[in-house]
Design a protein around this nucleic acid. Structure first.
Length: 503
RNA sequence: GGGCGCGUAGCUCAGGGGUAGAGCAUCUGCCUUUUAAGCAGAGGGUCGGUGGUUCGAAACCACCCGCGCUCACCA
């Protein structure tokens, strides 16, 4: 990194370092220790009064600079937005010498009174100024204007996706509108948490480093513990540990945390992602469907104040109850084929007809899943629960109480995307063991995402797990959906990138 | 991993075998209610990297690196 920094030293940076020295030489501290703030840009604009003059102390980053000899206008940006600030040499004296050495990007604190300029902009007339932090790198600043219709025009906006992701701190400064997505993300998670807490469910933490990984079908990250001299896996799901806690006697436990999957990356996949999983004893998947409906309903109304959303040009309405359709019926409706009774060859033919690539796939369950993904899923626009999945796709879900060959499982789909996955949890240790054995067989046949056998989990079930409903919600994808972002990178502050190369 | 596209000044982008360009940003001078402030002048580049073709390469070719879109994979 040293090399990178050296490399980046150009005239602009060099000049800022020189100014830094000049400020020090003149007795100005370029990196202050604190500053008392009693207002912000939003407050000042919302609570403007002509008389009596209001005195405020604010701090922020210089984002625009218009100097006119012995007086200057600048825009300060704080967490809430921007406010214009007016400085005159007559008012601040020698601090104006320091101000002349400041740049766009520097952070200052000012005290002054609020007034309206000739052109009507609410501004702060500065009576004292303090430099809080000198910025040593040029900010990729964009100029802003407002057109006749009051719309904001941004010129030459910082747009390089790579730089924006790698240096998100800069992105957040110069493209403040993206903050809204992250604010919404935070409020979505807070609202889910308060919904779960209000329901009396216990938030818990389970291991990220696991000797065996399970609870989903995915390739893991492997790491090594030196003292134990053993390889460990970063979890791909929380499921098996949370269910152990249900065995332990908690009635409802949930965890909101990162899972890790060592798979491809694209606009819906990041190697680490946020999952919410909850397990509730004495409930089944029917109960869980209503639970999801009310949780999402609460998120929509509390965070967004609406049930209507736009996602990639489609209108989504989160009315309850959501539509419900069995996977088998949904496929039958689209293809005319009953996948439960159809043979593997027929399934292959159907899959191909709908454009799925099923080369080398023999498993009936996987074929059915391919057909579903290709023929049904893209059309599930309004919130829909797809229920009752083929048994072999769901080694941790309980067999359906009446239907043969399927399990009590549902996935919630919105805008053609899966946003949650839930089952009546399998609590029969004998059945669980044989399902694991089936997975071992699949693994031997080359399915490197098949589950591993977890003997301790079987042992836990042998002690007895009450009937339990379990749910997993992909938080990133939910946030994408509700904030109309089509790339997961735009709902993550720091999406995974290849490391910058050292030269 | 495959296909397509992109990489030129701090930022946004033109240029497309013959001296490296513009706007904004920066610097100097003038300017005490400006707002994409203005006026006058100036500085700033390993044209992603390495090889090759050529009298001459930012441009053409090959390979590499990075990013984006997309397909596959990822239920």
């Amino acid at each position: 990194m040293d090399n990178n920094i050296q490399q980046d030293v150009n005239v602009l940076i060099k000049r800022r370092y020189e100014e830094l020295e000049e400020l020090k030489a003149k007795g100005f501290e370029p990196f202050a220790y604190s500053f008392d703030v009693d207002s912000d840009s939003e407050d000042i604009k919302n609570n403007f009064q002509e008389e009596p003059k209001r005195n405020v102390k604010i701090a922020g980053r210089i984002m625009a600079l218009r100097r006119m000899g012995k007086a200057s206008f600048t825009h300060l940006q704080d967490q809430k937005g921007r406010i214009q600030v007016y400085l005159r040499k007559d008012d601040i004296g020698e601090a104006y010498d320091a101000f002349k050495l400041l740049d766009i990007g520097d952070i200052i604190g000012v005290e002054g009174f609020v007034f309206k300029t000739k052109t009507g902009e609410i501004s702060v007339h500065v009576t004292s100024m303090t430099l809080l932090a000198k910025s040593l790198r040029p900010m990729p600043i964009a100029k802003e204007a407002v057109d006749e219709n009051g719309n904001k025009i941004i010129y030459d906006q910082f747009a390089d996706k790579e730089l924006r992701y790698r240096q998100r701190y800069v992105d957040l400064i110069v493209n403040p509108e993206i903050k809204d997505v992250f604010l919404k993300r935070s409020r979505i998670i807070t609202t889910i948490r308060s919904f779960l807490d209000a329901g009396g469910y216990l938030e818990v933490e389970t291991p990220i480093l696991q000797p065996l990984y399970g609870g989903a079908a995915a390739r893991p990250f492997i790491t090594h513990h030196n003292t134990l001299d053993t390889d460990l896996y970063l979890r791909i799901a929380d499921e098996l540990y949370l269910k152990r806690l249900i065995v332990g006697g908690f009635n409802g436990v949930y965890e909101i945390s990162k899972d890790f999957r060592n798979e491809g990356m694209d606009r819906t996949h990041n190697p680490e992602f946020t999952m919410m999983e909850i397990y509730v004893s004495y409930k089944d998947y029917n109960w869980m469907m209503s639970f999801v409906e009310s949780m999402i309903h609460k998120v929509c109304t509390e965070v967004f104040g609406t049930l209507e959303f736009e996602f990639e040009g489609q209108k989504i309405i989160f009315n309850t109850p959501w539509q419900r359709v069995s996977m088998i019926d949904a496929i039958k409706e689209k293809t005319g084929v009953d996948v439960l009774t159809a043979g593997a060859n027929e399934l292959k033919a159907v899959a191909k007809k709908f454009g799925a690539d099923v080369e080398g796939l023999e498993s009936k369950g996987k074929l059915i899943d391919e057909i579903f993904s290709a023929a049904v899923q893209p059309d599930l626009i309004q919130p829909t629960f797809v229920i009752d999945y083929p048994l072999e796709l769901s080694p941790l879900a309980k067999k359906h109480r009446t239907k043969e060959g399927v399990v009590e499982r549902f996935e919630g789909y919105v805008a053609g995307r899966e946003i949650c996955n839930a089952f009546s949890e399998l609590n029969d240790p004998i059945d669980q063991k044989s399902r694991f054995e089936g997975q071992v067989k699949a693994r031997e046949e080359g399915d490197d995402e098949a589950h591993q056998i977890d003997e301790d989990f079987i042992r836990a079930l042998e002690y007895g797990m009450p009937p339990t409903a379990g749910l997993g919600v992909g938080i990133d994808r939910l946030v994408m959906l509700l904030t109309n972002q089509s790339s997961i990178r735009d709902v993550l502050f720091f999406p995974q990138m290849k490391p910058e190369i050292k030269k």
